[in-house]
């Protein structure tokens, strides 16, 4: 499962990096006479409603999806680990205050809050990343807080404390590293979540704006041509599902590999 996930993700990364050069077709180039044409040798995945090559737009769309996923996961995990670590280690009113903020944010279904933020700020790639980060850090914070609460009572942490180590040093050097494997699993699954969320927002017209290719926006455009050009629906959806499946496989595989209780 781990290897399969890794292979799918590696292929997607490769496609995003060198795909546009390999395909060799400008994704903005329009062949209006051939608009909505199905797959041919020259255009293996067909052309869209504006006569643009679907394959060229798909590989460029992979860049958008992966970029959003990486940005959201990186910022969310750093913020979540820090906030969760501080809440769990400090305890008291700090923990209560952070806990209430987490409760309120968790009370919103994630994508609803993202829709609300993008609706207010206006649709753009940057606002999508911002909105997904605002909802994303909470999961990491909860996870890390729970683990830090357990870890701070362990003997090696108490030992470090009795040796006079500062709270910051104990947290950064001794406590937080014990949470990293869980955070890694969460981050891998979070990539899948962020990619779906970005595609959902773009599908609803609230994400990446034309002419930048986004898989969600491509699906939305294809919806109007279900009868005459089903390839516009099939291929972008397949790309999203495959990449998400890859990250889910990778996350599940990593969890099995890193969680001692799951090792048979």
């Amino acid at each position: 499962m781990l290897r399969l996930g890794l292979a799918v993700v590696a292929m997607a990364v490769l496609a995003a990096l060198v795909g546009p050069a390999l395909v060799g077709i400008d994704p903005r180039n329009q062949e209006l006479a051939l608009r909505l044409a199905g797959p041919t040798w020259g255009h293996p995945l067909g052309l869209d409603e504006l006569g643009r090559d679907v394959l060229a737009r798909l590989v460029l769309g992979a860049r958008v999806s992966l970029m959003v996923g990486v940005s959201v996961v990186c910022v969310s995990s750093v913020v979540g680990v820090l906030v969760g670590g501080i809440a769990g280690y400090a305890g008291g009113w700090v923990d209560i205050a952070i806990g209430r903020i987490i409760d309120v944010l968790m009370a919103f279904p994630g994508i609803l809050l993202a829709i609300a933020l993008v609706a207010a700020l206006g649709p753009s790639l940057g606002h999508v990343v911002l909105a997904l980060t605002v909802i994303g850090w909470v999961g990491y914070a909860r996870l890390v807080r729970a683990q830090v609460l357990k870890a701070r009572e362990l003997e090696y942490v108490q030992g470090a404390r009795s040796l006079g180590a500062s709270a910051t040093r104990i947290l950064v050097r001794h406590v937080l590293p014990s949470t990293y494997s869980s955070v890694l699993v969460q981050a891998t699954l979070g990539m899948a979540g962020a990619i779906v969320a970005e595609a959902s927002l773009s599908f609803l017209g609230l994400g990446v704006q034309p002419p930048t290719p986004s898989w969600g926006a491509m699906l939305d455009a294809g919806r109007g041509h279900l009868l005459d050009a089903p390839h516009l629906t099939i291929f972008p959806g397949m790309a999203i599902a495959l990449l998400v499946l890859g990250f889910n496989f990778l996350g599940d595989g990593l969890r099995d590999r890193l969680d001692p209780r799951r090792i048979k």
Binding site: A199, L226, G237, I240, L245
Partner: peptide, 28 residues
């Protein structure tokens, strides 16, 4: 797991394509 990875904004149009457009069984 495949079901989990299949976003509903893809599944919906696919179901509409098969059961609504191709087979004509259901309204879309």
């Amino acid at each position: 797991l495949i079901g989990l990875s299949m976003p509903n904004f893809w599944l919906g149009p696919l179901l509409a394509l098969v059961f609504g457009v191709q087979l004509g069984w259901l309204p879309i």
